[in-house]
Design a protein around this nucleic acid. Structure first.
Length: 608
DNA sequence: CCTGCCGGGCG
DNA sequence: CGCCCGGCAGG
């Protein structure tokens, strides 16, 4: 049930997968014994050919180097990396949160009232599977309250955003930034899209309202996309025997229904390479392959991330670029910042030299390995590492690799990872379980939250960890949900405390979960120690009835949790079962419709 | 498909 | 604010 719940929240149909490096996990801080979020920075597998039968070079002995996200409570040494074994990590494909006992003081995230809420563990009763969590009220003037949740409902890191929003944002970015007009919805409308900037004036077409901050957030939050892309390519590189069709579909975009395909093709100024039938010939040489791969990856702009494919002596390996070279536009600064922390490693056999710039590494490859007469592109012989203090040893495995299951291929590489953490969790878990034959249990936590910088070593990113603080200047969005005199749709205010404009979409994920297990929590203690002073909380015209179950029932019968100070979340109106004006009067008597119905708003005449 | 309606643009 | 409409979710 839980799985379906999570899937429901993401409503995703496309699948996704990712690389281990960069994955968000949680691990115990050696200092205070609490879990903190971080990213897998490196994977170290001791040389052990017998265990190394898999293409991603993971064995039960693999050590995962984790860089904790900076946060005010536990401040890891900036450059410090902490090593863990897979069993010590909590995250997709690793350990499950339900396997651990949470200590008091542990910071957790729960879905409360359909909204991600941060809390502090007060008590964890393992036998009863009850976690008492103290939640800071949205209003700083109200006392914290406590919730009791099941452990499986608790997450150790922030969750992801609403898939719908993410979708919109992604489409937006694609259309505007990558100069690609198509998206999956419009692609079915038989209309030719005009780039956004040409339609914004004099058109009723809705334009996006995302701020620069939000777009940056978007990019930041999508760092797993490059992992998606990499895993796709990795599966290709690791499985020379994999079905040719799958391999082509990933690179050449020949898979039907692949949204990446449609968007990239519709926005591509040049015809797809697959118009050349020879391309798919199995006699394609290595050079041809890498050229084609490179070209097409560039076109695909796999979710705006650059992926480099390294081909070396007939063997393909992949690595990620930490920068967004695929896009120009507004992100120059961001990219520059990321680029500063990069390191370039020569991937020539037995070399491994590292360089500060790609120019240097190219020069190195050219002079030391390739020689002036070789026409090979230096690009294929180096990889850019993310950071400064440790080399990431990811692509050194040269043992022959079994093909990945076909279900792990790339038909869905377009899907951003935050859309379907559940599926990814399973996939990654399956990969790991299959390859390692170790027990990595899935868990319900989403480990792809935007909680840290894309470059974990960067010290220039400010984190939003002050979950109990309120910034009076942070933007608030007031949304009037319905003009009709409904009592359950009072204007709501996004809590300004934790979330700046740059990440507020995280909050707008609620309505998917309203009818689900998120409302199983019970309010065990409600204490208003001090009356609100400033700013005044949103007016609630009707106080929700708190039943013994702790559920607040609104008029439409939807269970809602509303802690003190918490305002009504954005929620899509349940579909009314009553007759609506359209139904009653018919299209012919549109004049008789209520205004709301005329406006395609919620019917005010036949309310539910 | 159809329907209800949210989110948002335009004047 | 009135009006309109794209698009989504759900049936």
């Amino acid at each position: 049930m839980k799985k379906y719940f999570l899937n429901k929240m993401s409503t995703g149909k496309r699948l996704a997968k990712r690389s281990i490096i960069g994955m968000r996990v949680c691990a115990l801080s050696p200092d205070d014994g609490l879990f903190y979020p971080g990213r897998i920075h490196a994977v170290k597998t001791p040389d052990s050919p017998r265990d190394n039968q898999n293409c991603i070079n993971l064995t039960p002995n693999t050590r995962y180097s984790v860089r904790f996200d900076p946060n005010p409570v536990f401040i890891p040494t900036r450059r410090a990396l902490y090593e863990f074994s897979s069993s010590e990590l909590i995250g997709d494909g690793f350990g499950n949160i339900t396997d651990v006992k949470l200590k008091p003081g542990q910071k957790v995230y729960i879905t409360n009232n359909g909204r991600e809420t941060c809390g502090i563990i007060v008590e964890h009763d393992v036998t009863m599977d009850e976690v008492t969590i103290q939640i800071q009220s949205a209003s700083p003037n109200e006392a914290p309250y406590e919730l009791v949740k099941k452990l499986e409902e608790v997450r150790l890191s922030e969750s992801r955003r609403s898939p719908r929003l993410a979708d919109q944002e992604r489409d937006t970015d694609f259309a505007r930034l990558a100069d690609m007009a198509g998206d999956r919805r419009r692609s079915s409308s038989h209309s030719i899209d005009v780039p956004m900037q040409f339609t914004q004036n004099g058109s009723r077409k809705r334009r996006t309202s995302y701020t620069q901050d939000e777009r940056e957030y978007l990019l930041d939050g999508d760092d797993m996309d490059e992992c998606n892309a990499a895993l796709v390519l990795m599966s290709l590189s690791c499985s020379p025997n994999s079905p040719r069709q799958a391999w082509e579909s990933a690179i050449f975009g020949t898979s039907p229904g692949d949204s990446i395909q449609s968007s990239s093709y519709s926005g591509s100024s040049s015809p797809p390479l697959s118009d050349d039938g020879n391309v798919s010939s199995s006699s394609m040489s290595s050079n041809e392959q890498k050229y084609i791969i490179k070209q097409n990856l560039h076109k695909l702009k796999i979710n705006q991330h650059n992926v480099k494919v390294h081909i070396r002596r007939g063997q393909r390996t992949t690595s990620l670029s930490a920068s967004d070279e695929g896009i120009v536009m507004d992100y120059g600064e961001e990219m520059a910042r990321k680029r500063r922390t990069r390191l370039f490693k020569c991937t020539w056999k037995n070399c491994g030299s590292t360089f500060a710039t790609d120019q240097q590494v190219k020069s190195h490859v050219r002079t030391v390995h390739l020689g002036p007469k070789n026409n090979d592109d230096e690009d294929f012989y180096f990889t850019d590492l993310e950071d400064e203090d440790e080399a990431i040893e990811t692509d050194t495995n040269t043992t022959s690799s079994p093909p990945l299951p076909p279900t792990l291929s790339h038909s869905d590489m377009a899907r951003p990872p935050h859309e379907d953490p559940e599926y990814q969790r399973k996939i990654v878990g399956n990969i790991r379980q299959g390859l390692l034959m170790s027990s990595g249990s899935a868990n319900g936590q989403s480990s792809f939250a935007k909680s840290g910088p894309i470059t974990s070593g960067s010290n220039t990113v400010i984190h939003n960890y002050a979950w109990s603080q309120t910034s009076p200047t942070s933007p608030q969005k007031h949304v009037k949900l319905s003009p009709r005199p409904s009592t359950s749709y009072a204007p709501y205010t996004l809590p300004s405390s934790t979330y700046s404009s740059s990440n507020y979409p995280v909050l707008v994920q609620q309505y998917h979960s309203l009818s689900s297990s998120s409302s199983q929590a019970s309010i065990t203690k409600l204490s208003h120690s001090s009356p609100p002073q400033l700013p005044p909380p949103p007016q609630q015209q009707h106080t929700p009835v708190i039943q013994t179950t702790g559920k607040c029932i609104n008029q439409s019968g939807i269970a809602k949790m509303r802690p003190p100070g918490m305002s009504t979340p954005l929620q899509r109106r349940t579909r009314g079962e009553n007759k609506k004006c359209r139904k009653v009067y018919g299209m012919d008597n549109r004049d008789s419709w209520c205004t709301q119905c005329k406006w395609k708003k919620a019917c005010s005449r036949f309310g539910d």
